[in-house]
Design a protein around this nucleic acid. Sequence first.
DNA 1: GTTCATGCAAAGGATTTGCAAGTTA
DNA 2: TAACTTGCAAATCCTTTGCATGAAC
Lengths: 133, 133
Amino acid sequence: MRRKLEAAGIRPTPQRLAIAKLLFTGDKHVTADQVYDHVRSKKLNVSRATVYNTLNLFTERGLLREVYLDSTRAFFDTNLRPHFHLFYVDSGELVDVEDDELTGFFVGRLPQGVRFQDLDVVVRVYREEGSAK
Amino acid sequence: MRRKLEAAGIRPTPQRLAIAKLLFTGDKHVTADQVYDHVRSKKLNVSRATVYNTLNLFTERGLLREVYLDSTRAFFDTNLRPHFHLFYVDSGELVDVEDDELTGFFVGRLPQGVRFQDLDVVVRVYREEGSAK
DNA sequence: GTTCATGCAAAGGATTTGCAAGTTA
DNA sequence: TAACTTGCAAATCCTTTGCATGAAC
């Protein structure tokens, strides 16, 4: 973990390591508040300002991506591979669907002279009646 | 315009009509603030609260869709046809690209038992060097 | 010893709310 | 008249900032 931060040119302070440990264990979608609560529950002294600083720094350095799900809060996504999001409107769950054709679909539809940077897809869905979770 | 609101079960007050007139003339992407400034410039007495109330009401009744472009403000989109968004990161422009295959692409990729509700796509792009605007 | 990071509290910006007064059907 | 809308100001939520203290190289 320490290595990962150093590789990104980030000083591995205890706060950053704690946040990195939470984030970079499997794919995660988190809000700043969830991160704050988590590190607090570990009895770590971390301020909200530091949580925001850290999430923004990680994002800047390419370790995270921000996802805009709704206008009330920002989500950070640790999955950097091409994928889209399934947002279950009933349960609030957010699930990744990886797809190799995703980027190509849109790149193939860009006007002349326009370069692709990145892509956000949120598909709002719900479970059919009687469908098991 | 009056008809459109009534059809959606919305009382056509002067404030709502003014906002509707701005919105439903061609496809638009607007923020609450842009709406507020616009109606103000028309010398109409409209409060911010009413702008927000109205935009939320229109959205609820299916006359608008909210687009989440970044976490600093909400955009409202009057284009209800299947389309995705091209966001020019350099100029801040937001452009619609209509596409009949869009919905199908994602519906075909949903897991068993999951029903499609709707879809948001933002493709962040920029213009190539030397490419004319 | 600098430079960088942290924590706190205050500031900021967007949006919502409570409520009294005014409108609409 | 009864139900709904408006405007105002205050409140709320999330996020950022300023700055003094403390840690890292």
